[in-house]
Simulated scan of single mutants.
Amino acid sequence: MKKRYAAGLALALVGILSGCGQAKTQPADNTISITPVERKTNGPQMDMAVKYDFAGNHADVNGMEFRRYIWDGSAWENEGGTFTVNLDKVEENEGTIRFQPESDVLNAEYIVIIDAQTPESGNSIQFAESPALSGLPTEWLTSAVAMQEEKIDDLALDVEIPLLVRTFRTDGTQVLVAIDAFTDPENSAAVKYSSYAEAYTVKFVKNDNL
């Protein structure tokens, strides 16, 4: 990422930095930090629980909007609308977002559990059951799950990001999926050639009606 300068200038810069140290970058105010807690391995996903910690950076936020998308063969379609969770004021508060399968079957639906250090703590939501998901044959069924791998320090308000992408195949083969499959599905073999694929997103908002 850094440009290459003349050797003398580079050595002088190194000397200055070694003497005073490099300042750490601070997250911008009025943003959210999201940290993946339970990271998935690049293997078959049997334990599909996914968890994130979040915290406000002086954020004027009072809610989260969750959406579930289903891959229709050519695009992600929002299924079930939007669930809005009232968080009162996030500001400096911390919390967790957890995606927990409702049972131990591979194609179980997710329950989204939100726990925040606010008066409105302990919310949970569940989207309507998808017939396409529950109707998958289970004998040769495989699944792959992806989540954000790196911490996001400065997520802006009203910006939607994926927190989970899940794909299924019914031929017994395994194709790994990446979280980027939500924003760039055309370059994801796991999505394009899946028997079923879904994604869950979140957006932190300031809503005067909450």
Score class of each variant (00 low, 15 high):
residue 86 N to P: 06
residue 42 N to E: 15
residue 120 E to G: 09
residue 124 S to Q: 12
residue 142 T to I: 02
residue 114 I to S: 03
residue 114 I to N: 01
residue 151 K to D: 10
residue 99 F to P: 01
residue 91 E to T: 11
residue 43 G to D: 10
residue 96 T to E: 15
residue 89 K to P: 00
residue 140 W to P: 04
residue 106 L to V: 08
residue 37 V to G: 02
residue 130 S to F: 07
residue 125 I to P: 00
residue 123 N to M: 05
residue 127 F to K: 02
residue 58 H to G: 11
residue 113 I to H: 02
residue 135 G to N: 10
residue 81 G to K: 02
residue 86 N to L: 11
residue 127 F to P: 08
residue 55 A to Q: 09
residue 35 T to V: 06
residue 96 T to Y: 11
residue 147 M to Q: 15
residue 99 F to N: 00
residue 92 E to I: 00
residue 50 V to W: 07
residue 91 E to F: 15
residue 44 P to L: 09
residue 124 S to K: 13
residue 117 Q to N: 09
residue 117 Q to E: 07
residue 95 G to V: 00
residue 135 G to P: 08
residue 143 S to E: 00
residue 64 M to Y: 02
residue 139 E to Y: 04
residue 139 E to G: 10
residue 135 G to Y: 04
residue 144 A to L: 04
residue 46 M to I: 04
residue 100 Q to I: 09
residue 115 D to P: 06
residue 86 N to S: 13
residue 38 E to H: 13
residue 124 S to T: 11
residue 109 E to M: 10
residue 48 M to Y: 08
residue 147 M to P: 07
residue 118 T to E: 14
residue 88 D to P: 02
residue 99 F to E: 02
residue 32 I to S: 00
residue 93 N to T: 08
residue 85 V to K: 01
residue 52 Y to H: 00
residue 37 V to R: 02
residue 112 V to M: 02
residue 121 S to E: 08
residue 122 G to P: 11
residue 89 K to A: 04
residue 95 G to M: 02
residue 125 I to F: 06
residue 72 D to G: 10
